[in-house]
């Protein structure tokens, strides 16, 4: 395997509604920013891959317009996954491994504010036996949360503590959407959204875009501050929630093992719901001295199709700031943690 490093990360400020810029302008800003920070000339980028979803935009081929934000002239080697940007990064990493290119750009974008996300995500379900029930994404997560609470004396307080810590951490993240000092007691006294989930257990709806530039060791420009991808792997599980043990995340566990997720200082976990962070920590065997989601995580900002790749960016920020040496970044896709990606990152 070739050694590959993340050179730069850029994002829009994550917010409930991006009302100043179109998708393509969001893409243009993050791509320009990420390329500039990488120290590579734009013409040196050997491959580009993006992640997004047509259903967020409410139209077919929504990603095609994003090309306009790249200045793709002369034509570029480019691909797109209908997945979170974390998988775009994976494809870009693969491309470098083939030797066909030495540098690559991965980006993602989503404007969830246009629609009603919990209902849009119903469209992700088996269209024969699940989708037609009309079940939304929060209800699906609530079924998982209940299964988790039913086990090992788990409590809603543990979940609320995740929310409190996430939003407190987000105070240090200028780009986060939800932040502040909250009290567990007060949160627990508020009404349920979908029982057993309170509002604080759920992610906000977010608009945003982000981009990373990666390079093989021999293409890292001088003066760069590379964060090395020590391992990256992703796995999927059966779709039907009733076919799995929802309290476990075997796909995360396996991906973590394959990616070599040990000796970590911090972990950025893509856990849109509080209980999912606790399931993921368990699956990855993260003990208490691993700092979790210093950025605030998906509970502080959850741009669909973007939040997974954001975890890589946030892990890099911790390493660049000297607050961590070795970090884990995780991304999830689908309902109830169906598909998971783990990336292990290390400073120079």
């Amino acid at each position: 395997m070739r050694d590959v490093a993340i050179l730069s990360f850029a994002q829009t400020p994550y917010k409930r509604r991006e009302s100043e810029r179109t998708e393509v302008q969001m893409v243009l800003s993050v791509v320009t920013d990420a390329v500039e920070k990488s120290g590579l000339p734009k013409s040196d980028i050997g491959f580009t891959c993006s992640g997004s979803s047509d259903y967020l935009a409410g139209q077919s081929f929504a990603f095609v317009g994003a090309i306009d934000g790249l200045g793709a002239w002369p034509p570029i080697a480019e691909s797109h996954v209908e997945m979170d940007g974390a998988w775009a990064l994976y494809e870009a990493w693969i491309k470098i491994q083939t030797g066909m290119c030495n540098t690559a750009l991965a980006f993602s974008f989503g404007r969830a504010s246009m629609g009603s996300l919990p209902e849009t995500l119903n469209m992700q379900l088996d269209p024969y036996t699940l989708g037609p029930l009309g079940i939304d994404s929060i209800s699906m997560a609530a079924l998982q949360a209940r299964a988790w609470l039913d086990q090992d004396n788990h409590t809603e307080r543990q979940m609320a503590e995740v929310a409190v810590r996430s939003r407190k951490n987000a105070l240090n993240n200028p780009d986060a959407q939800l932040k502040g000092d909250f009290e567990v007691e007060k949160l627990l006294s508020e009404p349920y959204l979908i029982e057993p989930l309170h509002k604080h257990d759920c992610p906000p709806i977010t608009d945003g875009a982000n981009a990373v530039v990666i390079a093989a060791a021999d293409a890292v420009p001088s003066g760069a501050n590379p964060v090395w991808i020590r391992g990256i792997d992703h796995r999927i599980e059966p779709h039907q929630p009733g076919f799995r043990d929802l309290t476990q995340s075997p796909s995360t566990k396996l991906a973590g093992e394959k990616a070599g997720a040990t000796r970590l200082d911090i972990a950025e976990l893509h856990a849109p719901f509080t209980h999912q962070e606790l399931i993921l920590r368990d699956a990855l065997g993260l003990d208490d001295d691993v700092r979790i989601n210093p950025s605030g995580g998906a509970l502080a900002a959850n741009p669909m199709m973007v939040a997974g790749l954001t975890r890589m960016g946030e892990a890099c920020r911790e390493i660049w700031a000297g607050r961590a040496k070795r970090a884990l970044a995780h991304a999830t896709s689908g309902h109830c943690l169906q598909q998971n990606l783990v990336c292990v990152l290390e400073g120079d």
């Binding site: 810029r21 179109t22 393509v24």
Partner: peptide, 9 residues
């Protein structure tokens, strides 16, 4: 569109 697709500016 607020941008030039050819130049990316």
């Amino acid at each position: 569109r607020g941008i030039c697709p050819r130049c990316g500016v």
